[in-house]
Design a protein around this nucleic acid. Sequence first.
DNA 1: ATTAATTTTTAGACAAGACTAAAAATTAAC
DNA 2: GTTAATTTTTAGTCTTGTCTAAAAATTAAT
Lengths: 218, 218
Amino acid sequence: MFSQSEENYIKTIYHLALDSDKGISTNAIAKQLDTKASSVTDMIKKLSEKEVVVYKKYQGVKLTDFGRKVATGIIRKHRLWEVFLVEKLNFSWDEVHEVAEQLEHIKSPKLINELDAFLGYPKHDPHGDPIPDEEGNIHQIEKNLLSVLPKGTVGVCVGVNDSSSDFLKFLDKQGIGLGVEITIIDIEPFDGSLTIEINNKPLSISNKIASNLYIKKI
Amino acid sequence: MFSQSEENYIKTIYHLALDSDKGISTNAIAKQLDTKASSVTDMIKKLSEKEVVVYKKYQGVKLTDFGRKVATGIIRKHRLWEVFLVEKLNFSWDEVHEVAEQLEHIKSPKLINELDAFLGYPKHDPHGDPIPDEEGNIHQIEKNLLSVLPKGTVGVCVGVNDSSSDFLKFLDKQGIGLGVEITIIDIEPFDGSLTIEINNKPLSISNKIASNLYIKKI
DNA sequence: ATTAATTTTTAGACAAGACTAAAAATTAAC
DNA sequence: GTTAATTTTTAGTCTTGTCTAAAAATTAAT
């Protein structure tokens, strides 16, 4: 069906397309995949022939419906494997990405559907991201970046915007994780840093931290 | 470290070396991997440079100690994944091979050791084959092919010599599986076919079947 | 011990996926 | 609306792993 390399391009285009409804530029893909623009052009031609993307020279690419289906299939696998690693194999949320990047390419519909059942049909991965169903439908819950909410807001941490190991380890250190209740005590106008209350203790965090944490109001 | 292709060659050489202590021929490897002898020669050169095998032109190859370690590592992963698929994901023993062939190439020491623990440190895969430990040690239990045992033998099925789907499905159909008790009632001198008793019922099986079933005497 | 058959290796080609360097198209700047 | 800067594409090369066809080495046959 698709090679690992093709799958990585498809997944990347899908993610980049989430925050922009224009065509995705060759350069943006190259940057994300840490490769060269010329390599991207070559691959785009191939994916275009396979009807995964629509491509007009110099105008970026868009996924077709088919391409989107392929992308969500890969993301479904990636996130289910992440749940497996954390729930069953004692991985922490900052350790799962690498391994899931490999596991997402395993081809076996039975495997992934049985895994889904084995895990109890989880709705979210360990970073709070939704797990697409078999048809590619994604149920997004209502959530906001902590940085856009007003003083006094009480909510629960339901996701992160940055899944880098450094950020996740920082959160662990501060006792911040999915399901943890957070209250915005104060917002500093000068630099946008916040004082929040978490586990009944005050904590000061930068605006950058706050703009990578998703909160569900309660 | 090693590419999937390299790993497949290493594994194949290891398996072929089990029943012959001479060098493994280029042709034998080609046949097993369903590829051409010329491709094998090329790969052997590479593996030789990487000190996985010892190679002298026209004389076949042998794994080095290092190569054997690599091979058992791959086999360990393959068999642990097979256990996972059968025990946790409702795969039957004739469905696991394909998927395990993919999963065995996933690179993550933590993954495989946690999986081992999660499965309760199993000693054998779903076909009765032993699972190497982290150091590559393999504990072989005492077993014989059903075809070499005398009339009157009572034993337990502990393994198969052929893991093809056709054979395994045949065994399922006849109620033969790991742990099932078998008594040799009679052996036909003409064609070596056997009458065995299984679950208190007599069953006639060909010599070919018998020479693919491993029995542990009790 | 030559000839014949088989096995193995070389030589040259190809596809996938990546790269560099240069050309072409597009966008931005004045 | 030209010129300049940027982005994208082309052209050509490289590596990995494969193939075919032919040459070389080994083994078998008489």
